[in-house]
Simulated assay, not measured.
Amino acid sequence: MTGNLDPLTQRTTNLAHALTTARTTVTAANGLVRIDACADGEISIHIDNKVLVLGGDGLSKLLTELAAHALREARSNAANALAEFRSDRRVAEAVANTVDAMSRPIPPPVPTTNTRPHHATSDPGDDLARRLEYEELARENDEFLRRNRGR
Score class of each variant (00 low, 15 high):
2 T>G: 01
4 N>M: 07
6 D>P: 04
11 R>T: 02
12 T>S: 10
19 L>K: 02
20 T>A: 12
25 T>R: 11
27 T>L: 05
30 N>Q: 12
31 G>W: 02
33 V>W: 01
34 R>C: 11
35 I>S: 00
37 A>V: 03
39 A>H: 03
41 G>V: 00
43 I>Q: 00
44 S>W: 05
52 L>Y: 10
53 V>E: 06
54 L>G: 01
55 G>N: 11
55 G>K: 05
55 G>W: 00
55 G>V: 04
56 G>N: 04
57 D>P: 00
65 E>W: 04
65 E>R: 12
67 A>T: 15
75 R>D: 08
75 R>I: 11
75 R>E: 11
79 A>I: 02
84 E>L: 05
84 E>G: 03
85 F>I: 02
85 F>T: 02
85 F>K: 02
89 R>L: 11
91 V>W: 08
92 A>W: 08
92 A>T: 14
93 E>T: 13
95 V>Y: 11
98 T>Y: 13
99 V>F: 09
100 D>G: 14
101 A>T: 09
107 P>S: 12
107 P>C: 06
109 P>E: 08
110 V>Y: 06
112 T>W: 05
116 R>V: 10
121 T>F: 04
124 P>W: 08
128 L>P: 00
135 E>F: 13
135 E>G: 03
138 A>F: 11
141 N>A: 13
145 L>P: 01
146 R>K: 15
147 R>Q: 14
148 N>S: 04
148 N>C: 06
150 G>E: 06
151 R>M: 09
